[in-house]
Design a protein around this nucleic acid. Structure first.
Lengths: 331, 331
DNA sequence: TACAGAAGCTAAAAGGTTTTATCAGAAAGT
DNA sequence: ACTTTCTGATAAAACCTTTTAGCTTCTGTA
């Protein structure tokens, strides 16, 4: 109806319609300053009727808090990133904070471009995620004036990181196998140069003692398959349980065992790692596996960056969040 | 050194350091207005030295273009969304546009919350994505003053959508099988109430004629398995090729065929749909499959929203982007 | 000499909000 | 009757940038 019919209504419109000044309108809506209860209600009602919503750009410009954070990831495929991003976003949306997603594709030029764009947008913080916990972040991240949190990635000494508790996850897996009476447990896992693989292997060794056997290889189904071939081509006692470093490896293991007519879980129990449903639900039998609770990592990282952006102090270091076991039928 | 040592340098700082007014600094940096070449270079050099970068909030507030767009998705798991999001982000970052990611988790309350937040942030456009092309978007999307693009999702009649060309993808698959001499091709696919499944089935039927056989079921490996059981428990001629509606189904099919000692691709050739590498690389033999080019869909959607945000007119309708065949060893 | 036109620069407004300082008026205390 | 205190409301500054309109100064032409 009025001249400002297109576009959004501004606080001016509210103030004019309520017959008060802009400052009074602002105070009434935000509960700041001194306002008569009656006018406060009136302003609120009119703002509601007009469908007024404050312009986040103007607000951010003034308050020097944009209520937006950025997430930098090198994972294009999304297996790890999206659950975490969803967790972050889920937590933050209730606090009125939005999430910029930046896929760097492992390209330093792109990373720099994204980082600059985030800073130009005055983000309140940045979450850096990677596809492995021991990947170095881009050096530009180190000396920023905005807080940075590392999720599923390694930060510098004085930073805050959130990782899955790989050691605890491995222990849960092994202890479950022991609790169902298994004594000859073999660990088939991925590349030894992955920190996560080494941590899990150590935790496994601590529990099974010197009788244990760790087989490093690749993060692939094929490796699970050929690892079984290797075990059964040798003489000596055979395992009664296998703890795998990933669901994909577990799938290869299960297929290889079935090919040999070995019954799962009766003859050999199998536990995986990831709870990546497209794999773990589809093995025969369905896979008992360790869930890294990626969404929860996202939650915690989101809360942490929220705290930091409010100047709260956070204890630096690596926070390891517990994994949980998801029992299906393979163990 | 100066009083504004913390925080970012503003255009004020640049102007002062260069001994010119703010307007001249702005004009010099943006190449607008009339500026002496000499002063222009000087301002640029000083801006560079100072590490000046314009505040995107202030700029957006004034120009009424935030150079940010939002992406609304209901897919928490990320299989489809993240490749598309990466495609969008990849295209837009070079145009200085950033991407807000909003995971709605299929919760209307959350969708509304995210949508409001995006509008408050003055986004230049919104991309709506879903996990299936025939999912209705939230009704609030229909009457916005910002442009909306639908990617892998259904929009209203006058909107612009980008879908994979399911019919063409199915044709490529069937024609490949025919070109290697297969004549008895069966189509095993997912739920009939998925539009994509019906489109592909029709395209298949058009090519193979009345001798064809379409088996609808679930989008699972198990269904692929039991479909093969069904085929081989009946009498009559057996297929020499199978076109599957998803890689997961194809995996079940391959496993079931191998269990029966049927050689792939010699006796029966198999083609999948998705090129979801975690599955298609790992089958034995590796799977020949149809790739929906999700990243390309993201590219196109990104470019489209960029155009719309610049007031360019776009032909409404569904743009179907070609799928490609990725040949491995199963066909 | 006078004047048109252009070149180069700048003051000021605009964008939408929050916050500070101020002001008018009423109630309360002396 | 006069000051003090309090309440409720507001004008104006601030945030940082772009853009409009205007102001000098200079060059060239009549």
């Amino acid at each position: 109806m009025s001249d400002s019919d297109h576009g959004r209504r501004t606080i001016r419109d509210v103030a004019k319609a309520a017959g008060v000044s802009i400052s009074t309108a602002s105070n009434a809506l935000n509960g700041t300053g001194r306002t008569n209860a009656e006018t406060r209600e009136k302003v609120k009602r009119i703002a509601d009727e007009l469908g007024f919503r404050p312009n986040a750009l103007a607000r951010g410009l003034l308050m020097k808090r944009s209520h937006a954070i950025g997430m930098l990831t090198n994972d294009t495929y999304g297996r790890l990133t999206l659950p975490m991003a969803a967790g972050v976003s889920e937590i933050l949306v209730d606090h009125g904070v939005s999430l910029f997603l930046c896929a760097t594709n492992n390209d330093p030029r792109l990373a720099k471009l994204h980082l600059d764009a985030l800073l130009d947008r005055q983000v309140d913080g940045i979450i850096f995620t990677a596809t492995r916990i021991d990947l170095e972040p881009p050096p530009e991240l180190l000396k920023l004036r905005v807080p940075v949190i590392y999720a599923f990635a390694q930060g510098p000494a004085d930073s805050v990181s959130f990782h899955p508790d790989d050691a605890q996850g491995a222990r849960v897996a092994v202890q479950h196998l022991q609790s169902i009476g298994r004594t000859r447990i073999v660990h088939i896992t991925g590349e030894e140069n992955y920190l996560a693989a080494r941590i899990r292997a150590h935790a496994y060794e601590d529990l099974v003692g010197p009788s244990g056997q760790v087989m490093f290889g690749e993060w692939s189904e094929e490796w699970g398959h050929s690892a079984i071939d290797e075990i059964y081509s040798q003489s000596g006692p055979k395992p009664d349980a296998i703890f795998c470093g990933s669901d994909e490896i577990a799938r290869g293991v299960i297929d290889a065992l079935r090919d040999r007519g070995i019954s799962i879980p009766d003859d050999v129990a199998v536990v995986g790692f990831d709870n990546w449903e497209v794999v773990s639900k589809q093995t025969r039998p369905p896979l008992t596996t360790i869930d890294m609770q990626l969404k929860e990592i996202g939650h915690r990282a989101g809360l942490a960056i929220l705290g930091l952006s409010r100047q709260e102090k956070l204890e630096p270091g690596i926070v390891r969040l517990p994994c949980s076991i998801f029992k299906r039928n393979s163990a």
